[in-house]
Design a protein around this nucleic acid. Structure first.
Lengths: 337, 337
DNA sequence: AGACTTCTTGACAGCGCTTTCAAAGCATGG
DNA sequence: CCATGCTTTGAAAGCGCTGTCAAGAAGTCT
């Protein structure tokens, strides 16, 4: 412990009672100006920092908010996390992270750990916990859910329209003249993956293109599955001139598979991703993709949870996906494959 | 709070004193088997979970270890963080993260926040804090430093030989026949950036190639600076057939700049990075790079800090960088540029 | 000037848990 | 059968802080 100066040390040094010191620190009550000065002076001299643990115990709150992610190292969650960190900055609250590793039991465990640490609020990013459990949690604990809508908890769920984003991505491809558009879906047990698939289908339907299940492959949101998806597509002899991938990471994998086969992007096949990871502007070619406001997600979630903790009402700012057209998509040129 | 079952509730339920409950929970002393059973039974029935805050206050330790990174969302730190998380898993300790944002004052502040939370140990990843300050910290608090050697704290510093990695990368290029090798350096106020530059120079010297300052551009470890570095190189009319970039992110930027100019990789220019980020196997072409054992860094650091906290001696497992040859490097073909 | 407010302040009782400390229970041995 | 040494157990005192309470100081009003 760097310092073990306690509040009573300060009190003694300043010639006042501990209560008074506590009062000036928290601004809980008026204190004579000269005593206040004396206290500040003593704090400075002793280098006192309140012990948050003790404070937490006394107040019954820990001044921390739990954040449950699936994979703290994934580029997508990284952005959201950063947003949360930023959004909480300046407030007295602090984020503590836990990863669910895409396993409901791990997620449950993560929550238990957080609950042992007596977090005051909870931010859940997606996740696999059943709605019912999340609802139960939210009953006891101010909760905000990102990227998922839990029935009965709608006002606390921060989402953007995944289907709409996917729709626009697909629409963009259609506008470029593509007719045979493959889709690399995310894991379909996840709602957002299903929504994106849905948006893809809607765009097709609207353009009177019929949906061909042989053009859809399910991946797991990681690069290798994108690569394998393209391999699978090619292996089954599917004909396509464009690919809409349910996230950027799989698009990277797809890009590599295409590169290996000597298929030009966007010359022969156009490629669209979803997420707009920071590195997507630096792929070759830079990836056309649906930008998720991930940083804003984090910031908004943080703001929302702060408001709840302070008992203020709150409504989320409207956040939307936005198609970013870069260089991985082009007008359909030839009837290549 | 989901549960506010306290230890005394359990005690009452089990018909024993609070002390006894504490004893069976912590295994601090022998307890009659039947009481022990009764306690466990009561814990189960009430769904009791110890309040870590209270425990922390009573024991004088918070069961948490602080982790100071620069940017929690950066792909490189993400891996290390994940390693720390894994390494701490199973132990009663929990990581609490704070970001220094590459600013010494923010880093200092981050540490203060952590110290207010009474962390029991500290893992510092690189960072910009002066050695002296770090030394002072380590005096009061079990500390492990990753990716940096602090004089006087050597046994607690976990590093790999950056110069050696850079040497091998450059050497690889030389072996492929390259003679004019550009280098995109990291920010030179950081030791690792300097070390990598040093390794590059050593390899050149050893091959009797003379060092040309016009072939070196300093970046900031982010993608745009890699792009700008290549632009700068080209603008100043530098002739080179290979680039060694001080990290992968800048290599991505360089790759894009080359792509924009229609310069083939590795056909006309070979490209080597440093770090081996997860996405580097999925760039086009997959990037030859020096793999840092970042996940292991995290794990080792976690293991080390745990040992220190439990008073066990510890020595780091030897960790080394390793050149991963992929497809962004090739034999020198022509005297192109 | 006396009675009554209004402030400021210190004492003190917790928050939920750990950890002495000493009493009580038990077995052992002379 | 009692002294002796262990073991098991509960009472109680904190850990560092907050927040209630009531006492004392100061100010207000008639």
């Amino acid at each position: 412990m760097p310092d073990s100066v306690t509040l009573s040390h300060v009190a003694r040094e300043a010639g006042v009672s501990p209560s008074t010191v506590s009062r000036v620190i928290n601004g809980t009550a008026r204190v004579a100006p000269e005593k206040e000065r004396a206290v500040y002076e003593a704090i400075r001299r002793l280098g006192y920092r309140p012990n948050l643990i003790a404070q937490g115990l006394a107040k019954g709150k820990s001044m921390s908010v739990g954040v449950i992610t699936q994979d703290i190292a994934s580029p997508y969650y990284g952005e959201v996390i950063k947003g949360v960190e930023e959004g909480l900055g300046g407030s007295p609250y602090y984020p503590v992270f836990a990863s669910g590793h895409w396993r409901p039991d791990a997620e449950r465990e993560a929550f238990k750990v957080l609950s042992g640490r007596k977090i005051d609020g909870l931010i859940v990013m997606g996740g696999l916990l059943p709605d019912a459990e999340l609802l139960a949690l939210a009953e006891h604990l101010p909760t905000v859910v990102i990227g998922r809508t839990v029935p009965g908890l709608e006002p606390d769920c921060l989402t953007v329209d995944n289907a709409q984003g996917a729709y626009e991505a697909t629409r963009h491809l259609i506008n470029l003249g593509h007719r045979r558009i493959a889709h690399i879906a995310g894991p379909l047990y996840q709602q957002d993956a299903r929504d994106r698939l849905e948006g893809y289908r809607r765009a097709l339907a609207e353009a009177n293109l019929n949906f061909d299940p042989r053009l859809v492959v399910e991946g797991d949101y990681h690069e290798p599955s994108g690569l394998m998806a393209v391999e699978a597509l090619l292996a089954r002899g599917a004909l396509f001139t464009a690919i809409f991938s349910s996230n950027d990471q799989m698009a990277y994998g797809a890009r590599l598979a295409l590169h290996r086969r000597g298929i030009q992007v966007p010359g022969e096949v156009s490629l669209v991703g979803f997420d707009d990871l920071p590195s997507s502007s630096y792929t070759t070619p830079p990836l056309t993709t649906v930008a998720q406001p991930s940083l804003e997600f984090g910031r908004e979630a943080a703001r929302a949870i702060l408001s709840k903790l302070e008992g203020r009402p709150y409504a989320f700012a409207p956040l939307a996906n936005r198609l970013v057209v870069r260089e991985s998509t082009a007008l359909l040129r030839q009837g290549v494959r």
